[in-house]
């Protein structure tokens, strides 16, 4: 089947995914205790005033009516307004998009650049001290809580050495220098986990192929060792690596709330968690749908890439 049909089929297949997400989230939120009207009006509000607030926000409508109204809005690409701040949800998301995307892309690029060669190296030298050292490092990397690493790096680079700012985000429009100086620490902190994860997966996947016949053949034909490893073996080990990288990127885009809090990054993770805590339904629903869409898209790309990397899989 030509790839274009496959892509079309997959895009159509996103409709049920999104529908599942929409229904799931809507029900989960409405069944969760917590009343946005109380969040808005506070202790002093009388029962009558709470009732009026609910009415003004259409929260007193039957669930089905609310759901249909919401879906109708979504179809028109209107995410509604925040119950709490009254601002359009699309504006709230737009405000947070750049920090999140920036950190996600910097993190994932850094991780891949470090982790894939490391994984290949450790598979090649399986059992050597490099292998052992790298495995121990990667394991340590994801067993230390993110905030511990973050605080240690902040203490060293921002407070003691004063090389970097302790917090905040600088948009690219302020120049590459400020952008990187703000993005580097959070990205390094997040990379620790992703380097560990991707390197492990690379090592494992490489070990699966490194002793296969085609690798031996390539070697026998006189290919140089790097060429054997990166050109032949890595290509065939790419599927699990791609899966980890892709899901990692999707996770980073959906927001990394702890890192965002520690570095005070105005990202999507905090927007979502703050909205959950305040029961700001339209924001939560929109965020879920948007991150789901991003995720689905990334997965489509991964699946397409599968066929590029592994000729054994055909569509």
């Amino acid at each position: 089947m030509p790839v274009i049909f496959y892509v079309l089929k997959r895009i159509l297949a996103t409709v049920p995914v999104m529908a599942f997400v929409a229904i799931f989230v809507f029900l989960l939120l409405r069944l969760t205790p917590g009343d946005p009207a109380v969040a808005i009006a506070g202790d002093q509000a009388t029962e009558e005033q709470l009732r009026q607030i609910r009415a003004a926000l259409s929260l007193d409508q039957p669930l089905l009516v609310q759901f249909v109204t919401w879906i109708q809005q979504i179809v028109r690409l209107d995410f509604g307004k925040s119950l709490i701040s009254g601002l359009p949800v699309s504006e709230l998301i737009a405000q947070r998009l750049e920090p999140t995307l920036s950190i996600a892309l910097v993190t994932i690029s850094m991780s891949v650049l470090v982790a894939v060669p490391l994984g290949v190296l450790t598979a090649w030298k399986q059992g050597s001290w490099i292998d052992r050292g790298a495995v121990a490092f990667s394991v340590l990397g994801f067993s230390i809580p993110v905030f511990v690493i973050a605080y240690m790096l902040i203490q060293l680079f921002a407070i003691d050495l004063r090389w970097l700012p302790v917090q905040g985000f600088a948009p690219l429009s302020r120049g590459l220098g400020p952008f990187l100086s703000h993005a580097i620490l959070p990205s390094v902190v997040l990379s620790v986990i992703y380097v560990a994860l991707i390197a492990r997966m690379t090592r494992a996947a490489m070990l699966d192929v490194i002793h296969e016949d085609f690798v031996r053949t390539a070697r026998a034909k006189g290919c140089t060792e790097p060429r054997v490893l990166f050109r032949h073996a890595l290509r065939n080990a790419a599927i699990p690596i791609l899966t980890v990288v892709g899901t990692g990127l999707a996770l980073l885009i959906s927001g990394v709330v702890v890192t965002e809090s520690v570095f005070n990054l105005p990202g999507l993770g905090r927007l979502t968690i703050d909205a959950v805590m305040a029961r700001d339904y339209p924001v939560i629903q929109a965020m879920i749908l948007v991150t789901s869409a991003v995720y689905v898209l990334i997965n489509l790309l991964i699946d397409l890439a599968y066929s590029l990397f592994d000729p054994r899989i055909k569509y």
Partner: peptide, 26 residues
Amino acid sequence: DAVIMRIMDGLMAMPAVLLAVAIVAL
């Protein structure tokens, strides 16, 4: 495959922490 993976995609697309927060709150 198609159905299951779409549901998995859906579950996975939702930010894990948010999902956990909502479930625990519920």
